[in-house]
Every structure is written in C-alpha cells, then in structure tokens.
Amino acid sequence: MKIKKAVIPAAGLGTRFLPATKAIPKEMLPLVDKPTIQYIVEEVIASGIEDVLIITGRNKGSIEEHFDRAVELEDNLEKTHKEELLEEVRKISKMINIHTVRQKDPLGLGHAVYCAKSFVGNEPFAVLLGDDVVDSKKPCLKQMIEMFEEYNSTILGVQPVAWENVNKYGIVSGEKLNDKIYTVKDLVEKPAMEKAPTNIAILGRYIITPKIFEILENTKKGVGGEIQLTDGLKDLCNIEDVFAYIFEGRRYDVGSKIGFLEATVDFALKRDDLRDSFKAYLRTINLD
C-alpha cells in the first residue's frame, strides 16, 4: 500500500528554547531564513507525499499562517518589484495540502499521533518529528518509504547514538538482519545507560500501520506522565512485525540549543549566497 499521508506533531511547548518560545512556536525558529518546520514539510514533498497533517497546540497559529497565503505581503512585494521574494512566498502556500488539528491537552507524543486518527483512516502513514531535521542526498522519509514497500510493516527510523545519550531516546532491542535493518522485539523509552539493550535510537521518523490507533487509545501514561508513542509501538511489536531502519544522512536535534546551532552553521555553509562571507567570518573567530 502506498504511503499517501504524513503527520507532523508540533504541539510541544518548546521549553528548551525559552524565553524565545514564549510567544513563537519552536517549529517557527529559523535555520538561516527558513522555519525548521518548513524543512520537514519539504522532506515530505520530496518523498512523494501530497497531504500532511500538522498537530498544533495553543499559541501555534503562526505555523498555519506560514503555509497560508499572505495577500498583503504578496501585494507589497509585487508593487516593489521584488519578484524573487514574491515567488518564494507564493511557493510556500502552494507546496502541499496542509491540514491542521489542535492537541487540546499536552498529553505526549502518543496522544498527538492519536489525534491524527480521522485524518489517516485505515492506511499506513508517516510521522516526522519537528525536532529532527535530516540532511541527506535521498530524503530520509523516501528511504523509509522504500523500506516499507519492501517489508510492508511498521518502519522506525534509527541511528546509533553515544551510550551516554541513550536516556534521551526510545531505544530498540531486536535482531540485526543486515547492516541497515533490525527486527524490533522490544522498545525502551529513555532508559538509563546501564539498562539500555542497545544504543540504536529512534530519531524522529516513522512509518506506522493504522493498528497503532487502537493501541494508543488504550495506552496508559508512561515516562513523564505522558502517553508515549514508544509504549504504543512496543505493544505493536507483540501483534505484528516492526522493523528498524538505520537511515542515511546527518540528523540534527534542532530542539536542543547545540543541535540548532550546529544545523544553522552547516546549513548556512551550504548556501551559495552565504558560504564565502560566512567562512571568512568564521576564520576571524578566536576560539581560545
């Protein structure tokens, strides 16, 4: 079955970026000159999906506005003959079919995904977390879709992380089939290092079968007093095959300050209009 829909949970409070996120959604913080959530949406488009649902929360209206038309801005750019900027602004509102739904209570990622039940229906779907931006030659989600087409089962996007960081992620336990694929037998949400079965971590990309909604409906609150998607996926492993795929690409945790800064520098250095002058500036910095 073809993957036709994607879900982007974006209802978090962004506490790691306070006070910047007091009034601005963390997903709207820019990497150079583009909101982080736009990078995620562009990955969805590049992977062949045409419909995306963004799960929002209170004070997140600017996300929806970003992907809507800005008539006054467009008129101004047209009158001042700023054609290149006008084209860029118009392209954003036409890039994909954007749908939104509000997660009324902050009950965790599992609950956020459950909010997509009506949108998804009875078909497999993609989930992309806004805190994870992946820079890769082939879009990360496209890689995942290809794995789904081969295995026809839930696919978790994973990479190995440093052992001292396993307590930040959902960790996979299973059998390694080859250099890229694991069969998932169990999942542990944010384990202590000494209790982690592996250092293979789920990093913000999923393709999930619709059976997950039935499970999440009955999933109890877990770590942090929230309904954890990892707990739902753990139960899913008991009733159908789940695989973990080690995707190719550099993943940035833009929900952390250091990850956001790393992504900003790297993305700026990829820009033809910024690379030379930015490199020249970086060479002037005394790092001692």
Rank of each mutant, 00 (worst) to 15 (best):
K4I: 12
V7R: 03
I8A: 02
A11S: 15
G14N: 03
T15S: 15
L18D: 04
L18V: 10
P19E: 07
K22V: 13
A23I: 09
I24H: 01
P25D: 01
P25T: 00
E27Q: 13
L29H: 04
L29F: 11
L29T: 01
L31M: 01
V32G: 03
V32C: 10
K34Q: 08
T36A: 12
Q38G: 10
E42D: 14
E43D: 15
E43F: 09
I45W: 13
A46L: 09
G48I: 00
I49K: 03
E50Q: 11
L53W: 04
I54G: 02
T56A: 00
G57K: 09
N59H: 11
S62R: 10
E64S: 11
E65F: 15
E65G: 12
F67T: 05
D68P: 00
L73C: 07
D75P: 05
N76G: 11
N76Q: 14
E78F: 14
H81D: 09
K82M: 14
K82W: 12
L86P: 00
L86Q: 05
E88N: 15
V89P: 02
R90C: 10
K91T: 14
I92A: 02
K94H: 14
V101W: 01
V101D: 07
V101C: 10
Q103L: 15
Q103F: 04
K104P: 14
P106A: 09
L109E: 04
G110C: 07
G110E: 01
A112E: 14
V113R: 01
Y114G: 03
C115L: 09
S118A: 12
F119D: 05
G121T: 08
G121F: 11
N122C: 07
E123G: 07
D135L: 14
S136K: 06
P139V: 04
L141R: 12
L141S: 05
I145K: 03
I145A: 07
I145R: 03
M147A: 15
F148E: 06
E150I: 15
E150S: 15
N152I: 05
N152S: 14
S153M: 03
L156T: 02
L156V: 02
G157Q: 10
G157W: 06
V161L: 08
V161H: 07
A162I: 04
E164V: 12
N165W: 12
N167K: 09
Y169Q: 08
Y169I: 02
S173Q: 07
K176D: 00
L177Y: 05
D179T: 10
D179Y: 11
Y182C: 06
D186P: 03
E189V: 11
P191R: 06
A192R: 10
R205G: 06
I207P: 00
I212H: 05
F213E: 02
I215M: 06
E217H: 11
T219C: 14
K221R: 14
K221T: 09
G222L: 01
G222D: 00
I227F: 04
G232W: 03
C237K: 05
C237P: 06
N238C: 08
E240R: 08
A244P: 08
A244C: 08
Y245P: 00
Y245T: 03
E248P: 02
D253A: 13
K257N: 09
A263W: 07
T264A: 02
V265K: 11
V265G: 08
D266P: 01
F267S: 07
A268F: 04
A268P: 15
L269R: 03
K270Q: 15
R271E: 05
D273I: 09
L274F: 07
R275K: 15
F278H: 01
L282G: 10
T284C: 10
I285T: 02
N286F: 07
